[in-house]
Computed example of a mutant assay.
Amino acid sequence: MIIEVSGLRKDFTVTTKVGRLRRERTVVSAVDGVDLVVGRGELIGYIGPNGAGKSTTLKVLTGVLTPSAGRVRVCGLDPVADRTTLARRIGVVFGQRSQLWWDLPLGESFELLRHIYRVPAAEHAARLRTCSDLLDLDGFTRTPVRQLSLGQRMRGELTAALLHGPEVLFLDEPTIGLDVLSKQAVRGFLAELDRRGDTTVVLTTHDLADIEKLCERLVVIDHGRVVHDGTLDALHTRHGSRRTIVADLDAPWPAGQTVPGAAVTAVEADGTRVTLTLDGRAAGEVVAALARIVPLRDLSVQEPDIEDVVARIYRG
């Protein structure tokens, strides 16, 4: 396993004012008993509300913060004790922080990083060519970083994090503030990275479209604890999400009509439009049963909304 976390806890001491002269100290657990195992080549989504412990977990995994308790191994190393060695084996992109040189052209930042990580010139050139092709960098590598748009800079940040060939890539809000085209470019790049299977990716984001498009496995953390670790389908099943079929008919839906033999939990009719809520099984049998009852004009299958499910978890 590339990441192994057992019983991780990270405490912070918070000082609050009590009266005019006194100060009271309180210990707050930002991460409280997290267990996480990630295999080589996996791309996982790590999500939660603000203050849930996502960024704290990433900072512990990258050696920025020392855990208060628990066992943490990344690439077989202790992130704090072996921080310098680990830095050469991981890549990190934080949406609000830059690893590029503000006044230098983007290409010169890449060259400086080659020397910092001591990457052979041939390897560096090959990786840069791959990233340039996938992220369309050629049009602005000679532009100073301070003059790049947010989307261009994020594409540069992703490239910079990968030029030394890391085994693990940690991404904290990589699409925050990006326009639609830039988001598509970043998602496409990450999907290709996942397809190749050379790099493990841990993605934290508030944009749940990133999760739906990229991640087969989803880890949800809330109040410092993992409340879900599994697939999106398992999340929907666990929290009662259901697919729906919306059908437009040539005639009004018969009053009191059911759909015999089909996996339907609810039927809502409004004139010639009927909405069927499925029990989680395939929609094909329901559509066939529906067609036997009334002539169909149009039909759509709507997937459950992940934002609604996650919002309910957060509220709970």
Rank of each mutant, 00 (worst) to 15 (best):
L218P: 01
T130W: 15
R88P: 04
A251T: 12
I293R: 13
W102A: 05
L113V: 05
V226T: 11
A282M: 09
R292P: 06
I313F: 01
D248G: 13
D32E: 10
L208K: 07
T141E: 03
L150M: 12
G41I: 05
P295S: 08
R153A: 11
H164C: 01
G91A: 06
D248S: 13
G48R: 02
A191I: 02
R114D: 01
R195P: 06
D229L: 06
S300V: 13
D248E: 13
L276N: 05
D207Q: 11
V309M: 05
E192L: 03
I90A: 03
H206G: 03
A81C: 10
D78Q: 03
T205L: 07
A191S: 12
P295E: 08
L169C: 07
C215K: 01
V309D: 06
L276S: 00
D32Y: 01
I245T: 02
D32G: 06
G284H: 15
P79N: 04
C131G: 02
D179A: 11
D133N: 12
V301N: 04
V145Q: 05
T277M: 05
T15H: 13
R217C: 09
A263Y: 00
Q184A: 14
Q96A: 12
C131K: 02
V274H: 03
R25E: 12
A185M: 10
R40K: 15
G230I: 01
F12V: 09
E268G: 10
L299T: 02
A266K: 14
G53D: 00
S55K: 03
L100C: 06
L296Q: 03
R83P: 03
G256N: 07
H236S: 04
V180H: 11
L21W: 13
A160K: 04
P260N: 09
V80K: 06
V220E: 02
V186P: 00
V18A: 14
H239F: 14
R23D: 07
V201M: 07
I44L: 11
I47K: 05
V301C: 11
R20T: 08
V60C: 15
G19N: 08
T237M: 10
G230W: 04
G76I: 08
G19T: 11
L113P: 07
T231D: 07
L162M: 14
P120M: 02
P105R: 03
R315W: 07
P174F: 06
G256F: 10
A282T: 12
A288T: 13
G256T: 09
G177E: 07
A161Q: 04
K213D: 09
V226S: 02
G156H: 06
G151E: 00
V92S: 00
T130K: 09
